[in-house]
Design a protein around this nucleic acid. Structure first.
Length: 399
RNA sequence: GCCCGAGUGGUGUAGCGGUAACAUAAGGGACUGUGGAUCCCUUGUCCCGAGUUCAAAUCUCGGCUCGGGCCCCA
């Protein structure tokens, strides 16, 4: 027997129906904010990702050479491909551009709870504006999506890298290593790098919960964004310790957690970034976020979310020798937009209804010679156990 | 890459040195025109490899996969 590669999953019908339901809900909300769906290839040139994140991430990427020796990667995330697409052919379009997407991504990580080697991400990019109304709407939309699909326990934290870097400048500690330690919340590591009084300052700084306590000029924009979020009635926590590991992030950043998920609790994250020039485009403001689709599915399950149940098909059982009549009825119903499943195993009526019952079908149509002669079939209600005759011509009305 | 735990029919479990069992599901039949019950039949299992032993599902080691945690998380 051949299994599936490590960290990948099969989705059975029940789970797939749930995923499609949530997928549909999320798409509706993106579109409600004027975002349009796009898709990019599953494979890209490896350089697209190393340019942005450095050579060391090759370790965590599924990368290979194609038959002509080109270095190809399975996409580990979707922001870089979207910006690549923008630089390639959309630079002269009217701004802002608002794109959303849903796709599978691949990372060569150690699988664990809520972390897989193939996983699905929703995301969006807003290209062309970094004004306060743009960033506020982006954050409000992220929160709106998660609340609208029915998640109850989520926490939105908003930070600002300009403010954080300005503070670190003040204590002479604005470097990559420091940002990495802050991102990891490695307070022991941070303590080793700072003088005692600076460490005290730092602790005080990241405890700040009211933006008005900050007097840097970098905080002015942040104040406006937060006041707009109040207008959207979005609850948030100021968290100036959000660092985001990579240095192309700038300005406003945010993360949304589902605390119940434990170690892998972050379900969405994003902010402002500079990637366009890195990929050869003319400078323009960009911001976006990604939502971990698998994680929100797990979070919904943990909250005992009630998923909508799809209608089962109408089942068609028929007496031996009535196969062609069964096909006629199937075609008639399907033409009327009704889901139909007919017996495909030459079962007798008894076994046929047994099957329909096990599959949870609500209604069965029984086709038999005596009724057929009179232009009729039997419609059976599987739950009540009652059945009645129905004229073939009016059959669609009776269901 | 590291640490802990676990892998027995499709699914859920028992057996824990003496050659695999139970339940359930699936397919067929009893029932040639009516489901959920009952009975019968059929199919199918020790994650992989090496070692110890007269004998390994059982003990040992390695690998793989899964679950949990660390690292990482664009």
């Amino acid at each position: 027997m051949i299994g599936k590669p490590r960290g990948t999953r099969d989705f059975l019908p029940d789970e797939m129906a749930k995923r499609r339901q949530i997928e549909y809900e999320i798409k509706k909300i993106f579109e409600g904010y004027g975002y349009e769906e796009i898709a990019t290839p599953t494979i890209e040139y490896l350089d697209l990702f190393t340019l942005k994140s450095g050579e060391q991430i090759i370790e965590e990427i599924y990368a290979f050479e194609d038959k002509s020796g080109r270095k190809i990667a399975l996409r580990p995330e979707l922001t870089a491909p979207v910006i690549r697409m923008y630089v390639e052919k959309l630079q002269m379009e009217a701004k802002p551009l608002k794109f959303y997407y849903f796709g599978n991504c691949f990372r060569y990580d150690r699988p664990q709870k809520a972390r897989y080697r193939e996983f699905w991400q929703f995301g969006c990019e807003l290209i062309g504006s970094n004004r306060v109304e743009a960033i506020a709407e982006l954050i409000a939309m992220a929160h709106d999506i998660l609340k609208s699909i029915g998640l109850k326990n989520i926490v939105l934290r908003i930070g600002n890298l300009d403010i954080l870097r300005r503070f670190l400048d003040g204590i002479g500690a604005n470097d990559k290593e420091m940002m990495r330690l802050i991102d990891k919340k490695d307070f022991e590591g941070i303590e080793k790098k700072l003088k005692k009084e600076d460490m005290d300052e730092f602790k005080k700084f990241i405890e700040i919960r009211d933006i008005n306590e900050i007097n840097f000029k970098e905080a002015e924009k942040m104040k406006e964004i937060l006041s707009l979020l109040d207008e959207y009635s979005i609850p948030y926590n100021l968290d100036l310790s959000i660092a985001r590991g990579l240095d192309y992030y700038i300005g406003t950043v945010f993360e949304i957690d589902a605390p119940k998920l434990g170690a892998e609790k972050q379900i969405a994250g994003g902010g402002e970034y500079n990637l366009v020039t890195l990929l050869g485009g003319k400078h323009i403001s960009t911001a976006g976020f990604a939502i971990g689709f698998d994680r929100i599915m797990i979070a919904l399950e943990m909250e005992n979310y009630k998923f909508f149940e799809e209608d089962k098909p109408i089942y068609i059982a028929y007496i031996n020798g009535m196969l062609k009549e069964a096909i006629k009825i199937s075609r008639l119903l399907r033409k009327n937009g009704i889901k139909v499943e007919m017996d495909l195993m030459s079962r007798n009526i008894s076994k046929s209804l047994d099957y329909a019952n096990k599959k949870g079908m609500k209604k069965a149509i029984i086709i038999a010679p005596d009724e057929w002669k009179n232009g009729k079939v039997l419609i059976k209600d599987m739950e009540k156990g009652e059945q009645k005759e129905a004229e073939i011509k009016k059959i669609a009305d009776g269901l």
